[in-house]
Computed example of a mutant assay.
Amino acid sequence: MVLFGIIIALIIAIIFSGLVTVQQGNVAVISMFGKYQRILPPGLNFKIPFFEQIFKVISVQNRSIELEFQAITQDQANVYFKSMLLYSVINQDEETIKNVAYKFIDEKSLMQTIVRTVEGSIRSFVATKKQSEILGLRKEIVEYVKDQIDQIMEEWGYHLQDLQLNDITFDEAILKSMSQVVASNNLKAAAENEGQALLITKTKAAEAEGNAIKIAANAEREAAQLRGQGVALFRQEVAKGMTDAALEMQQANLDTSVILFSMWTEAIKQFGEQSNGNVIFLDGSADNMQKTLQQMMSINKLKVKS
């Protein structure tokens, strides 16, 4: 009876030793006599006691690695990178899990290979570019690395989720020269903007001055036309008045030369009032006055005939 109880206890112990719990987010790889046998999904599983062994528990969750390394550009400038690599097992298929379990001897070897592969890809890309181009090529560097190592990692059973270039720096001397270049470019841009503003100001001022001259010229032309029209009207009125006065004096049997003499004396009066201190010399002799009156009478006769 005691022996039977011992046997039952041993059987129960053996059965319980075959129970395996696999945590969520993990897959267990089972081997028997050193050869791959099968995989165990998350949850409670059973393996053959003493014969089947858990070779490796593989996490299918995302993993990350921080990288710090140096690269050299085409123009021999040192570039320092700080980056973060995010990767994971492709899926939980049996072939994928077998690759993950048996491609590398341990996790450390896998990490070292991934790091060296990523660093090598970035270094080969940077070596084809100049120092001045690197800061503007973050996206291109990431895409290049993904294209280079994605296929390789898939052969190992992994997939590159993301590569983030958190920091890209240069030697202090290069940083100083880059700052000087930026400062000089800013000064150049400011000078160009100032020059453009001055050119616009000068152009607008010239246009305004030209428009003002044009307006003034048009106004002067219109004023001259109006003055000419006024003078013409004045002369017409004067001629008409003289003609009417001469006709009336002729009808009254009076000498029309009195009109001319009156105009001549009126002109002298106007000269005196409007001369502003200027001196006008007139020949007041009888002969000259007679000559002037004859000329004025001749002009008047011509106007009357016309």
Rank of each mutant, 00 (worst) to 15 (best):
E207Y: 05
I299Q: 15
P41W: 01
E207D: 10
E194C: 00
S184N: 15
K214D: 06
D167F: 06
L3M: 07
M178I: 08
N62E: 14
Y80V: 08
E172V: 11
E209A: 15
F50K: 08
E119L: 04
N218E: 13
L260V: 03
Q131S: 12
F234E: 12
D171M: 08
E155I: 02
G272A: 10
W264S: 09
Q229W: 01
A267K: 11
R138K: 15
A101W: 05
E52C: 06
I152C: 02
T265G: 10
I299D: 14
E172K: 15
M1V: 04
R63M: 10
S177M: 09
S83T: 08
I213G: 01
E133R: 06
Y87I: 02
I174C: 08
S88C: 04
E95D: 13
W264P: 02
G284F: 09
E66G: 07
A101N: 08
T169W: 02
A239E: 14
N300C: 02
G25R: 04
I268V: 12
E68L: 01
S121F: 05
I149S: 03
F46Q: 07
A232Y: 13
A28T: 07
T169G: 06
K103R: 13
T265M: 10
K139F: 04
Q24D: 12
R221H: 10
A239I: 04
Q164W: 06
G43Q: 10
Q294W: 11
T96Y: 08
N278T: 06
M296I: 09
A245E: 03
L19M: 13
M178T: 01
Q294K: 11
W264E: 05
L10C: 11
F16L: 13
V231F: 14
K103M: 05
F271W: 04
F55H: 15
M84D: 04
V231T: 08
Q236V: 00
T21P: 00
K130V: 00
T256D: 02
K47M: 13
K146N: 07
E209Y: 11
F16S: 12
L293W: 05
V100I: 09
K204L: 11
V20F: 05
L198F: 06
M242L: 15
D162C: 01
A28W: 04
G5M: 07
R63Q: 14
L40P: 03
L137M: 15
